[in-house]
Every structure is written in C-alpha cells, then in structure tokens.
Write a protein that binds this DNA or RNA. Structure first.
Lengths: 213, 213
DNA sequence: GTCTATATTTCGATAGAC
DNA sequence: GTCTATCGAAATATAGAC
C-alpha cells in the first residue's frame, strides 16, 4: 500500500463516484459528510478535494454520470426487433427491476427530491437525462405495440405509471426495511416482479377498452 | 405578539409537529436543522428544547404521531358496507391519493429510508404502524371482494403493489419536480389517478386468470 | 415557557509539506 | 496525488435570566 500508486490513481475518480453514490443513496445528501466519504473510500478528506472542488460538484457528478448505461440498455431493448412486442415489454420490465433494485442509480429519486429545492439544476438534469428518457422509451414501446396491433388501445401515460411506480416504490420499501430480519418475506422481489409483469401484459394484450376516461 | 401567550402555548406541541414534519419531508432529516425548524415555527431554537429533548426525539414524534388519522380513515372505508366492492376500492384509492399527495405523512417514506440505518426503531414503528396497516386494509378489501364473488381471483400482494406503487412514486416525482414550471403537465394528478383507478378496477372485475404465476 | 448567550462538536474547505 | 494540520461556519445542545 504505497502512498502514490499510479495504478490506484488512474481509476480513482470512478472509484470515488461509485462509493460516494452508494453512500449518498443510503444516508441522503446532507446525511453524508465528506469525512464519511473519505472513510468509505479509504483516503483522507483533503484528497477528495483534489478530485472534486466541492461536495456539491461531487454530488452532481454522481448524479449526472451514473445513468448513461442504464438509459442506453433500455433503449437497446426497444430497438431489438428480433422479439415480439410482449416479449420486449417483459425484457424492459426485467431491466427496470434490475436497475432500480440492484444499482444505486435506481434509488436516486429520493435523493433528488431531497435537494430539488436547494440545487434545482440537478433535479432538472436527472429528470431530463434519466427519468424522462426511461419513461419515453417505455411509452414508445407501448405505442409501437399499439400501432402494430399487438396491444389494446391503452393510455400510455397510465401504463407508464403502472409499470414504473411499483418498481420504484419497491426499491424504496426495501431500502426502508433494509435492517428488518423479515424484509425478503415482506417484499419478495421475484414474486412481485413476476406478478407485476403478468398483470401489465394482461392489460396490454387483453380485450376491451382500457383507458380510464 | 406577547412573550408568554397561554393560548399559543397550549397548541404549541401540535404546531411544532406539523411544521417540523413539513420541513423534514421537504429537506430530509439531516438537511433540516433545529435553527431551520425554530425559524419556521417562529420561536427560538432553545425553546424547541423545552418541548423535545433532542432533534431525534422530535423527529420520532413527527413520524409516530402523524399517521393515526390516515390509518383510521382507510379502515373506515373498508368497514363501510353501504357501498359495492368496486365503489369501495375506488373510495380507498381516492383516499390513498389524497393522503400521499396532500399530506406530509404520505411523503414520509423517503425520509424513513434516509434514517433507517441510523435509527432502525423509527423505520420499524413507521412500517408496522402505517405502511403495513395501509397495505393490510387494502389487501383485506380485495380478499373480501373475492370472497363475495365481486372480484376475480387476483393475487392480493400483486394488486397491493399495483395500487400503492404508482401513488407513492407520483408523490415522489412531484416532490422532485416541485420547482419545474411544467410539473403539472408532466405529472397531471387527476388524469393519472382516474386512469389508475380504471385500470385497477378492470383487473379486479375482469374475466380470466389474473395471477402472474 | 420563552428568551439571550454560549459551550462543544462536526461540517465543508484550504494551506502547505512530501 | 496524498498527506497532516487547521480555519471559519454551522450544527446540536445547555445555562441561566425573566
């Protein structure tokens, strides 16, 4: 463990972002101090300021550099024309569950809500760069399916909320109950995901009028 | 504005709890200082410590004393046997939307997730006192309807997530976009609620197998 | 029960050696 | 690029007058 290891330094920025994001989503922005972050990363607090000039700029980097891969993967699923429309919706929902339950970016929504009043630009960037694009991709899949005659004439906005809402809330519920011994019994991911996907596909492929107006 | 107004002092505790809850849900636990709270209430910081011996105990009171009314109203809807099963579900969902979008207790979930690691007892109390009871009440309504033959044989756990998920996520999304000029166009509450209720009732009263297994 | 004043700790951020 | 040492501001909490 030398002091100036170049191999460590090269991936340092990515390492900081990864651990900082994990800490921010676990304890909130205000609840995470630079000393906490330095401890989690294993360097001194002053060294953090060599890579990022302030806590806010580090946080902004966590938010704006964390979601690119997630957005691209979902867009790739939409473009995949080797599968049927229902299979595409299933693949998209499995990816949405994966993102929101196993990666930090999926648990960033409460974090953004916390600082939206103080740093509105971050909320804007996260919403237009991640949320809106995720929503638009799924809405597009549904509209594609309707145009091809695979799906009933559902309201895409309503379906969007029915698809994302339970996933984001499940991630929040599991974060909230992380310390409970019976968390997996209270919120069984696999069972909830499969039931959810089944119900969505039933609404999309089912007969009859599906809009609530 | 006298210094020792008894009329003010009598309702002081409730006043503190109300304004503190609003501040906590807006800026998070760590993001809200005792000075912030004192300013919002219009008293001095030291006076807060006359009513609550610490920030943590004030926060615990906000969480544990905030949800009683909400739980009782939803349970009253379940017990109301003057209406049909679908009408009861509709009334319950309208109440769930009202709670989560217009009262602070409905926006407490991210707050609990933030401090769950530091004060696990609060997460336990909130989950068993509010979340679990809200869930159980709705699940009960669905099971009642199935038993009476009003509803199809859906999976109550899956329906529970499909009912609460979109509402809680909508509250979070609107909190996140509170500063956006186009928030009401991005997240139009009335339209989303009506579509949501319509889709849930379609799943509950529709024909065919409804479980995803 | 509310106030002013202050003790004590922790925070974000900087200076300067190596 | 990382470190030790430290600054000034802001945090939680307390002391004691009225």
């Amino acid at each position: 463990m030398t002091k100036n290891d170049p191999a460590q330094a090269s991936g340092r920025r990515a390492d900081i972002l990864e651990r900082a994001t994990e800490a921010f989503v676990s304890h909130g922005y205000a609840g995470t101090s630079m000393a906490d972050l330095a401890r989690a990363i294993g360097i001194q607090k002053a060294s953090l300021y060599h890579h990022f000039r302030s806590k806010e700029s580090l946080f902004v980097a966590c938010v704006t550099e964390g979601y690119d891969g997630a957005v691209r993967r979902l867009e790739a699923i939409r473009s995949d024309d080797a599968i049927s429309d229902p299979a595409r919706i299933r693949a998209a929902m499995e990816e949405i569950y994966r993102i929101n339950l196993t990666t930090p970016v999926g648990r960033m929504a409460p974090l953004i809500a916390e600082i939206a009043a103080t740093i509105p630009e971050v909320a804007q960037a996260f919403h237009s760069g991640f949320i809106a694009r995720h929503y638009a991709t799924v809405t597009g899949m549904i509209e594609d399916g309707i145009a091809r005659g695979s799906f009933a004439h559902v309201d895409p906005l309503g379906m969007q909320h029915l698809i994302f809402g339970p996933v984001i809330t499940l991630a929040l519920s599991r974060e909230m109950t992380a310390s409970f011994p019976d968390r997996d019994a209270l919120y069984p991911v696999d069972r909830i995901r499969e039931t959810h996907i089944g119900l969505i596909l039933r609404l999309l492929t089912g007969k009859g009028s599906a809009d609530g107006s």
